[in-house]
Design a binder for these strands. Structure first.
Lengths: 119, 119
DNA sequence: GGGTATAGGGCTAATTTTAGCCCTATGCTA
DNA sequence: TAGCATAGGGCTAAAATTAGCCCTATACCC
């Protein structure tokens, strides 16, 4: 897979939650799923800018962290659905607080001295 | 400096706040400063595992985003202090919510199926 | 003079994260 | 038969982040 050289130390809560929601697409995925978009293909469509590969990887990690649950229906063509676990649901308020703050920030350019967004 | 190939799109609040606090040491720095540790050398001591270089970089970014303010005292040897801006202060509750959630997660291993921490 | 400490920039390398292609398999429709 | 959709793994490359060294300058102490 990939051999990590520098060990992660999830010493504080902050590091822990960053480990969980820190991926580039994870917050989006959590949101999408919470809004009823459960199937992988749907999530791909909603996050068209993300490579399919990465979405699956991040979904896997969310699953490993116990944030989402993956249900496989034994049908053909395959059908899979993701659901937020109870733990995942408990994350929603946190994400909302973060998003609210970020949205406020975006609305107040005067408080935003210089943003080098590159490219 | 570094030429970004893939443009960042800070389309939603979530992306925005991640841009601001997403650095490896940024939440720590914000906390440290909020707790009265203002001088660069102090921050280095508190985050001994981080390279000095990276700390400075992240401090710069926090400053550019308007989260902290840098005061230079014209003395020798040089003296610099960082302070949270009003905006930076408004970030503290958000960070606390995140940290609380993460701390809870750390306390409940049964809700934590498999953690591949590597190394 | 040689050591400390102060605060940082320049530059490159190591590490980690994302992205992009290939491949599997089945059943449907045109 | 060809093409689409379904859901993913394998592998490698690109991009981004973080780390690690070098350097500057001044004033103190021994």
């Amino acid at each position: 897979m990939f051999e990590r050289k520098i060990p992660k130390d999830l010493d504080c809560g902050m590091a822990m939650i960053m480990e969980i929601i820190g991926g580039k697409w994870k917050p989006c995925l959590i949101r999408n799923i919470s809004q009823g978009h459960r199937r992988p293909s749907e999530l791909q469509r909603l996050n068209a800018k993300a490579s399919r590969r990465v979405l699956y990887q991040q979904l896997q990690e969310l699953e490993e962290h116990g944030i989402i649950e993956r249900i496989v229906y034994p049908v053909l063509p395959p059908k899979v659905e993701y659901f937020l676990t109870e733990l995942g649901n408990s994350l929603l308020p946190v994400i909302n607080v973060m998003d609210d703050w970020g949205t406020q920030y975006l609305k107040n350019p005067h408080k935003r001295p210089l943003l080098k967004l590159g490219a």
